[in-house]
């Protein structure tokens, strides 16, 4: 386990991925950190889960069987508006081009990670989006 102190206690992550291996791998990883995970295979299932168990974070594929990541983030945003909560979302996806990344970030995902992912990067990313954002700078 890497950097176990980084992840917030009581974190509840909704994983949205149609691939069984991905869902299981993420569940195993986060369970090692003591983080609760709930898995959904598609957008409609993720919505049902969100209504029942409000997650602190969504980790979603862009490629989904009943839509795509843009549909997913749209639903997450609607959920946020409806319940006046903030649920950050990370795209963890096979769509690895830079344009995919920019599209995902512009659409509202906090972060974009491509598969296969680095465990340390995933954990660091989850830690960062569930905490306050760092300051930014402009350079010449």
């Amino acid at each position: 386990m890497y950097n176990s102190v980084l992840l917030r206690k009581g974190l509840r992550i909704l994983i949205v991925d149609s691939n069984l291996d991905s869902r299981e791998l993420l569940a195993i990883i986060f369970n090692q950190y003591g983080v609760e995970t709930i898995a959904a295979t598609c957008i409609s299932e993720s919505l049902e889960i969100m209504e029942r168990i409000q997650p602190n974070l969504v980790i979603g594929e862009i490629a989904l069987p009943d839509g795509d990541g843009y549909d997913l983030i749209r639903k997450v945003k609607l959920f946020e508006t409806k319940y006046k909560v903030r649920i950050p979302a990370i795209a963890l996806t096979i769509y690895a081009r830079k344009s995919d990344q920019i599209g995902a970030l512009a659409a509202g995902f906090c972060k974009h990670l491509s598969k296969p992912f680095e465990l340390e990067e995933l954990i660091a990313t989850v830690a960062s989006v569930t905490q306050e954002a760092p300051e930014m700078a402009i350079s010449a």
Partner: peptide, 29 residues
């Protein structure tokens, strides 16, 4: 919003002219 760049540029905002900036997005924030 730049769409082709390496990890060395990720997270940077670079001014390229008067009131003109290129952002190499690392995250939505």
């Amino acid at each position: 919003m730049a769409e082709r760049y390496g990890v060395e540029l990720e997270g940077q905002n670079i001014q390229v002219g008067e009131n003109e900036y290129v952002t190499y997005l690392e995250d939505g924030q």
